[in-house]
Design a protein around this nucleic acid. Structure first.
Length: 480
RNA sequence: GGGGUAGUCGUCUAGCUUGGUCAAGGAUACCAGCCUGGGGCGCUGGCGGUCCUGGGUUCAAAUCCCAGCUACCCCA
């Protein structure tokens, strides 16, 4: 059963608040495996909702789902040198089957480029075989040595990884960008988390990619969180895996590839961005339960009349396509249920009690503002649909405002450090594009370049670090 | 990568400073029964603990020491 409410305030102890919210809302729990977590019903339902939305989008654009093996032979993982170097420190290896040592050790996939592209090499012969546009939902393992955090950094996590192969660079560029736009749509219009979109620096890009595009959100504690990435892999992998085809001019070509992914850490972002001192606040489009109906029986009032009204409303809501629960558990008081559903983040609660029955109304309580509104019974469905919409857009607007307030423009390194330590957030600054400066800044402050925005911004000062001529405007932050 | 804090019924915790009064107390949860219901209702009774693990010190360890495990926090 669920525990009592949160004992700390979000504004007072953010880390503790986060852990408590995740555990007590029933999203997740620890298990016996260090650094790993249990995705409980509540978070898994959210994940399924995200899957449904994303599947719809990628299938509509010609992608298909597949499943590749969990294990990758060492020789395959090693093929692309930069890729291997990037991942090897956190690869979990299988060395034995029973008591028998394996002839070649197997990596538990940290990502599936290599195992998938070995197959692509077999499947591609002609320009007619292209493009290949596959996606898989799975878990990956990255053996973190640093402290883990529920949803944000665990040794195993769930994600989707898309892997495509194209005839031309332009096509692959386009694919990487199209996917990033889909991601952005999901983050902003479903999760209600506004993101910055841009390109990673060479230092921060996916190991083995030509370039990496990314979406970055800011958390209330001023740290950035990478929400999804989409990589143009160029021909780096196709050359080492020998994925090639004969084009229409009978010339042999290597394919151009992309890979892209987002993970369950998005759920953590949603908790951080929207949650409050009562627990989760879920955006209506993502909430597994959008409307919870709590009947309020009173002695002396016919319980029948209340539950029948409640059931009636639930049926109407279900017909209208809303995810609804009628919480008619008799063993809990209404007040207890209010608290529980608030902890779990249900966007709207509908109360039906004697007062409502008498006046032919129901009472709606918004999770995001705690506001209570009475509406006529016959107008309840329309009112709820409208209110869910309103909550969704208000949550995004609120988060957008937070993003703006958490973005600071600086012209000097002194200012940079001051802002970083005082409030964090995104720090917009001019940079000479030299990796040395980038590295030094990271060493001295812990901040990294999160991205270079797609929409080119005009340089407005010398390089923040070396004070030489700046070449681009970039966004720095400390990140999760 | 570096540092810090913590681990006692399912959960939160008292006890630890100063070893014995603790074969571990409370709250909550859970079970039974009553009573109720518009913000975590109330009453009665009941169930529940390898005091994280392993060593050590001691007549005596939840308490002191060492090691390990796990979690959390902070810093680079």
């Amino acid at each position: 059963m669920s525990d009592m409410g949160l004992t700390v305030k979000k504004s007072e102890d953010f880390s503790e608040w986060y852990t408590q919210t995740v555990l007590k809302s029933g999203l997740a729990d620890y298990s016996s495996v260090k650094g790993c977590m249990i995705f409980r019903e509540h978070s898994y339902a959210i994940w399924e909702k995200i899957q449904k939305i994303f599947n719809q989008k990628i299938k509509a654009t010609g992608h298909r789902n597949v499943y590749f093996p969990l294990f990758i032979p060492e020789s395959l993982l090693k093929k692309e040198a930069a890729h291997f170097a990037g991942f090897v420190p956190e690869v979990a290896w299988i060395t034995h089957g029973g008591d028998t040592p394996l002839e070649e050790k197997l990596a538990v996939r940290p990502t599936s480029e290599t195992i998938m592209y070995a197959a692509y090499a077999k499947w591609v012969r002609s320009w007619r075989d292209l493009p290949i546009k596959l996606n898989q939902w799975c878990s990956v393992v990255r053996w973190e040595t640093e402290a883990t955090k529920l949803f944000l950094r665990t040794r195993e996590f769930l994600w989707q990884e898309g892997h495509t192969a194209h005839a031309t660079k332009e096509e692959a560029d386009q694919e990487a960008m199209d996917i990033l736009h889909m991601y952005k749509d999901i983050m902003e219009n479903y999760l209600a988390i506004p993101v910055l979109a841009g390109k990673k620096t060479d230092r921060e890009k996916f190991k083995g990619a030509l370039y990496t595009t990314t979406l970055e959100a800011i958390m209330p504690d001023g740290k950035a969180l990478q929400m999804g990435t989409s990589h143009q892999l160029g021909q780096n992998f196709s050359k080492v895996f020998d994925i090639k085809y004969l084009d229409q001019k009978e010339k042999e070509q290597h394919v151009w590839q992309t890979s892209w992914g987002f993970s369950t850490r998005m759920i953590g972002a949603m908790v951080m961005v929207h949650g409050d001192d009562k627990g989760l606040v879920l955006p209506p489009k993502i909430a597994p339960i959008q409307v919870v109906i709590v009947p309020i029986p009173y002695k002396g009032t016919s319980i029948e009349s209340i539950t029948s009204k409640a059931k009636e409303l639930q049926e109407k809501l279900q017909k209208a396509g809303l995810a609804t629960v009628l919480d008619d558990r008799e063993e809990y008081t209404p007040g207890w249920k209010f608290n529980e559903w608030e902890l779990k983040g249900a966007p709207i609660r509908v109360e039906i009690g004697p007062r409502d029955i008498k006046q032919g109304q129901v009472t709606l309580a918004r999770r995001d503002t705690s506001q209570k509104i009475a509406v006529k019974q016959e107008e309840a469905v329309d009112a709820l649909i409208k209110l869910l919409d309103e909550i969704q857009s208000r949550m995004l607007a609120k988060a957008k405002k937070a993003l703006e307030e958490n973005t600071t423009t600086v012209k000097t390194y002194e200012e940079f450090k001051k802002v970083l330590n005082a409030k964090g957030g995104f720090i917009r600054a001019s940079w000479c594009a030299d990796a040395g400066c980038e590295e030094k800044i990271k060493e001295e402050t812990g901040a990294t370049i999160r991205l270079e925005p797609f929409e080119k911004e005009t340089v407005f000062s010398k390089c923040i670090y070396c004070e030489k001529e700046a070449k681009k405007v970039v966004y720095f932050a400390r990140a999760y």
